[in-house]
Amino acid sequence: MSKNDSSPAFMAGLEPLSRRSLLRTTALAGVAFTTGCARVFGRKDAPEQLEFVHLTEDEVRVITHLTVVLLPTERHGLPSSTETIPTVQNLDDMVGQMSPQTRELLGLGLWVFERRPMVSFKFSRFSKLDREEATRYVHAMQEGSFFERGLTATLKALVTLNYWRDSRTWPALDYWGPVTQKWGVRRLGNAPLPPV
């Protein structure tokens, strides 16, 4: 079982989030890491610890906002990408295993992504854009220059991978997940030595 596994029953209690509450979630996530608070979300099945060891405060803000924009889960009956599935926490773990060069590149990419909308979006940073504008910005980046396309695709892959890797998202995809144990498939162990 994955460390993120839990009963799919949690989905029944999922409350649709309004745009405002999502933005509040984003802000709360910001508060969570600045104050070291681990349980700002009162839900039983919420990520239990919001401790970002490897990402900086600014990076968490950008990634959390991007998560909200890329994965509007509440409209699709999916587990929340910010409250239920620890998407950003998973990404933080991943960053901890990155080589120094990759880590540096990611930091630079996030810095650029945050500041890129300044001209077209009234000098606002990405994390300050409301959800509609932020979505427009992501789409514009996807249609942009090779650099913009590449940066957006990379960040998007990191965020979405760290959401869909959680088995609680799979029922919505009609995906069977791990089956070996479920089917009672016997382990064969090591192959015998080949004949001399």
């Binding site: 994965l71 409209r75 996807q142 991978l161 799979w170």
Partner: peptide
């Protein structure tokens, strides 16, 4: 392969379109 693999190879959408794309996995 698994749904996670789609992120690395061919998925391109964002927001609602991304989720619709993923829901067509089967």
């Amino acid at each position: 392969a698994e749904p996670e693999q789609l992120m690395a190879v061919g998925e391109q959408k964002a927001g609602d379109a991304h989720i619709e794309f993923m829901k067509s996995y089967n």
